[in-house]
Design a protein around this nucleic acid. Structure first.
Lengths: 142, 142
DNA sequence: TATTGTTATACTCTATAACTATA
DNA sequence: TATAGTTATAGAGTATAACAATA
């Protein structure tokens, strides 16, 4: 039956499912320290090493002005820091502070509680499906 | 390797993937007739038959005041209509108008274009994974 | 009193347009 | 001129608290 599904039908199913799941994840206000968008950017900087603001925006798939705001709040909270670029004074190299690393650990754990609880009830096959789907979704946009 | 993955690790992967995909889907401003949240509610009313406002909010997993706004805009655009409930005058029964049905067809096609384009490039196995993942995700929150 | 829904308000998220500083 | 980033502004999306109407 999946074989008979058109791209448009498949797209509709995925779109609605992703939208609703994202809504539920975003509404998990477990800890008011940082928002989900801030946490996501912070994780990216930690994972992908020191980056310029533009590079973080590209990876997170938001426009530069949106990232400016996110980074400003992270910097104000001393979760990231900026150091001068050696050759280009327009750019600043952004890296995660020790406090940022600690917060990622705490916040990720707290935020994932809701999701992890439900994942516990899944079969090994369902879990495998989700891991593969995450990989496929990430590949879609690149 | 998936077997060795903790719930928290799995949750992180899914959370980031869903967040970024949702961002991309939402930013698809292909047609300014309705927003993605409005379209989603409209599709729900069409699919699940005539519903009260509270029922739509529950299915869409938003709080009642959020749905009030969404429904008000849909009604102003004459995409839905309300009829009195036979027994309970607090409720109004919401249904999709003919214009609403036409808009769903047009808008869904336009919005899914971006996604459908990318889905075309996927293997049958990847498509199958996405369909199954959508089912698992929908099941998670219920 | 309990339930359904709305109004008032505020905050998050994100975008586009215009601007500054540097290359 | 072109590029990296920021500031200004606005609109979408959603929530909580307080309220009104009806059961």
């Amino acid at each position: 039956m999946t074989a008979a599904m058109t791209d448009s039908e498949l797209a509709s199913i995925i779109r609605l499912s992703v939208l609703r799941t994202a809504r539920r994840l975003r509404s998990q206000r477990v800890n008011t320290a940082v928002t989900l968008s801030q946490l996501s950017a912070l994780v990216t900087v930690k994972k992908c090493g020191p980056l310029s603001a533009g590079e973080v925006a590209a990876i997170e798939r938001v426009q530069p002005p949106s990232m400016t705001k996110i980074l400003a709040s992270l910097e104000a909270a001393e979760l990231i820091e900026r150091t001068a670029h050696a050759e280009d004074r327009r750019q600043a190299i952004i890296s995660v502070t020790d406090a940022g690393r600690r917060l990622i650990d705490d916040e990720t754990r707290a935020r994932d509680e809701w999701l992890a609880e439900r994942l516990t009830g899944l079969s090994a096959q369902d879990r495998e499906t989700l891991v593969r789907a995450a990989e496929v979704l990430d590949r879609l946009g690149s």
